[in-house]
Amino acid sequence: MPRNAQRSTPVIKDVAKLAGVSAPTVSRYLNGTAKVNEEKRERIAQAIKLLGYKPSVVARALANKEMDSVMVFATNSGTFSTNMTSIGVENGARERNYLFNVTTLSEDRMDEVRPTVQMALGANPAGVVVYEYDHAGAEALRYIPDDIPLVIVGGNAGEGRYQVINSEREGGHLMTRYLLGLGHRTVYHVGRPQGPSDNTRTNGWRDAMAEAGIAAPPVIEVSATDLSESVEAGRRIAGFDDATAVFAGNDETAIAVIKGLREAGKRVPEDVSVVGFDNRTFGPLWTPPLTSYSQNFVETGERAFSMLYEQIQARRGGQEPPKSRLETVRGEFVERGSALPFAG
Rank of each mutant, 00 (worst) to 15 (best):
A5P: 00
Q6T: 12
T9Q: 12
K13Q: 12
V15K: 04
V15Q: 05
L18K: 12
A19C: 12
P24H: 11
V26C: 07
L30K: 02
L30P: 02
N31K: 09
A34E: 11
A34S: 15
K35T: 12
K35S: 14
E38K: 15
R41A: 15
R43E: 07
A47T: 06
L51Q: 09
Y53E: 05
P55Q: 04
V57Y: 10
A61T: 03
L62G: 06
N64I: 03
N64F: 03
E66V: 01
M67G: 01
D68V: 10
V70T: 08
N76S: 13
S77K: 08
T79R: 14
F80A: 10
S81Q: 09
M84H: 09
M84W: 08
M84G: 00
S86L: 10
E90A: 13
E95I: 03
N97H: 14
L99V: 10
F100S: 00
D108N: 14
R109W: 10
D111A: 15
R114E: 15
T116H: 02
T116L: 08
N124H: 08
N124Q: 06
P125Q: 05
G127Q: 06
V128Q: 00
V129W: 01
E132Q: 14
E132Y: 09
H135W: 11
A138W: 04
A140V: 05
A140H: 03
Y143S: 04
P149I: 02
N156W: 01
A157Q: 12
G158N: 10
G158M: 07
G160D: 03
G160R: 01
Q163R: 06
N166G: 13
R169S: 04
G172K: 02
L174G: 05
L180C: 09
L180S: 07
Y188S: 07
Y188C: 10
V190P: 07
V190G: 08
S197K: 09
D198R: 11
M209E: 03
A212M: 08
A212R: 07
I220F: 10
S223R: 08
E229Y: 12
V231Y: 13
R236P: 04
F240A: 10
V246T: 11
A248R: 11
A248L: 12
G249C: 13
D251H: 09
D251Y: 06
D251R: 07
V257D: 11
I258Q: 05
K259Y: 15
G260A: 13
G260R: 11
L261W: 04
E263Q: 11
A264S: 14
R267L: 03
E270Q: 00
D271E: 03
V272G: 00
G276N: 11
N279K: 00
N279S: 10
F282V: 06
P284N: 08
T287M: 13
T287E: 14
P288D: 01
L290T: 01
T291S: 14
G301P: 01
E302W: 01
R303Y: 00
A304F: 01
F305V: 00
S306D: 14
M307K: 05
L308F: 04
Y309W: 13
E310I: 02
Q313T: 15
R315M: 10
G317Y: 09
P321M: 07
R325I: 01
G331Y: 08
E335S: 06
G337C: 05
A339I: 01
